[in-house]
Design a protein around this nucleic acid. Sequence first.
DNA 1: GCAACGATGGCAAACGCTTGCCAGCGGTCG
DNA 2: CGACCGCTGGCAAGCGTTTGCCATCGTTGC
Lengths: 335, 335
Amino acid sequence: MSDRPDLGRGPTLRDVALRSGVAVSTASRALTRPGRVGAQTEARVRAVAEELGYVPSASARALTSGRTRTVALVVPDTANPLFFGMVRGVQSRLRDAGFVHVLADTEESVEREEQVMAELRGSVDGVVLAAPRADEASVTAWAEEFPVVTVNRDVPGPRVLIDTAGGVVHALQHLASLGHRRVAYAGGPRRSWSDRQRREALIAAAGGLDVELVVTGPYVPRREGGPAAADATLLHGCSAVIAFNDLLAFGILDRFAERGTTVPDEVSVVGCDDIFGTDLVRPGLTTVAVPVERAGAAAADLLLRRLAAGARGGARVVELPTHLVVRGSTGSVPR
Amino acid sequence: MSDRPDLGRGPTLRDVALRSGVAVSTASRALTRPGRVGAQTEARVRAVAEELGYVPSASARALTSGRTRTVALVVPDTANPLFFGMVRGVQSRLRDAGFVHVLADTEESVEREEQVMAELRGSVDGVVLAAPRADEASVTAWAEEFPVVTVNRDVPGPRVLIDTAGGVVHALQHLASLGHRRVAYAGGPRRSWSDRQRREALIAAAGGLDVELVVTGPYVPRREGGPAAADATLLHGCSAVIAFNDLLAFGILDRFAERGTTVPDEVSVVGCDDIFGTDLVRPGLTTVAVPVERAGAAAADLLLRRLAAGARGGARVVELPTHLVVRGSTGSVPR
DNA sequence: GCAACGATGGCAAACGCTTGCCAGCGGTCG
DNA sequence: CGACCGCTGGCAAGCGTTTGCCATCGTTGC
């Protein structure tokens, strides 16, 4: 093996300066303040930098500027395809702004979340905190200490909220129009703000639609939670079920298939999120589409603006609409 | 320009030292070298640090130590669920070692890849480079400049290789045993090492199995590539198709459904990767399961070891096996 | 012909932390 | 009783950049 014990970081600005015959400060300016030094000097320095393969040290920069040009995206579960989209949204904006992002998974745990946020404070300029599970007090405290943009959690500070409440109500209307009079809501994590929004919106809307709503759960918001939710739906004599999220809905479909209960002839199923896979199942899953990539992008924008503007810059709130995507998993009530 | 609003970083080590009545150096040691200072002093410093909510500045640390405790994961397409498993694998190992990771997407573009790698050099300790599309020369050059572990690319240096070649051959045997005599391989990106491995392994194996292999493509390795691949399969009179990856296979299934060609009765389909969704489609997709999370973990291990050991530490190669998962999309040849 | 000036580039002081080196100190050993 | 030693903790030198301030110098305006 090419035995280079000197796992050396590359050339530094000093090397560039030396080689171009200028002072370090001049080299710095030549590379970062176009026009601040003579055109000729600038060209020479640039050439040398290129030649040496000089790459500025991000840490050194961060040290003087106080900004790391790094933001973190903290999500409760990196295995959920829902967050893939958010990652992409955040990333696209960040990249254009010359930022990089780190990804942290809190595994749906409040403790991990707290730990992660504490660690992050020392190493990033700001955080996009998706669907935090911690108390409002904690989240607020973090937001006071450093720039935080939350997604799907209605706490003070800049935030992006996705109106899934409106979406599930549309779903309920859709079901009502198909004749369903008894509908189950298979709930998600109790600490989830989204779950509460959806649940309460459904309860509020049910009366006006002459629908009886049965709330079941909470279920683990993954496929494994589905069987219990499916069985509860039938147990309570519901002809349709709205699941907290698509993952859960997939599990519900699995279970119905296993039981020989046909969808949508015997029971209708609605999911939420419109993640990868909703149009892969047969029948396709009717679901409330959340614009998750846009949400990520919006959150990144908010964060970037906050970083640019300092503490002032206000606490903007972006609300994103959802829409119902009707596929094959919903149909008329069986008679 | 000092109009910087007090986007205040938190307390520094100096604050802690001042408040505990010790020198900065002592405070540093109290927090990072247990035992190096008196027990009493250590306790006091720790208490003060806790009280102040002190978080060490990662950039300052990085500057002195030369290590950022950050590694990057570079993938060609963050939208591919395949890579999310890898992210998880990498992350799990990294977290245990106290590292964070940044995620970079090269969008299947060689230029982006080069750009990303250059930028990364200044800000991370090392890189896990998944399925690089650049020339071998470039990759080798990067690996010489700083610690790089590649995944699914057989270039010198520490690397993780997944034996999908073996997997697709199993798939071909499986098809042969079902009576298929004319099988298509719907190829992926020409720059993909995996694609080449699979293609060549299939070609080599076909003869011995008395199967005629028709190579088609390249197709874009996403769902959108499927229709073309499906049509080509039928055009060439093949009774089965092995797709470069599952995404492509999904697209193929879509197209067959659209054409009214039933799977597996009229044609069999095999995917590769076993990503999220393979058991969601009906019929379930027979596919070559790639232990992608393990691959991520292995890559992270290799990288961490390299970082710990310096340039020596050798160029270990980890080879991971695959296995064929048979679901419903493959069946006997139609007669 | 002189002062004021803009352009250019160097000096040095940070930024927050780690770490080699040394001083003080009480105790141990021969 | 003096030489040593181990334990503590302080001093200061960086790590690689950025940036405020200053010195120089060739111009320009009057």
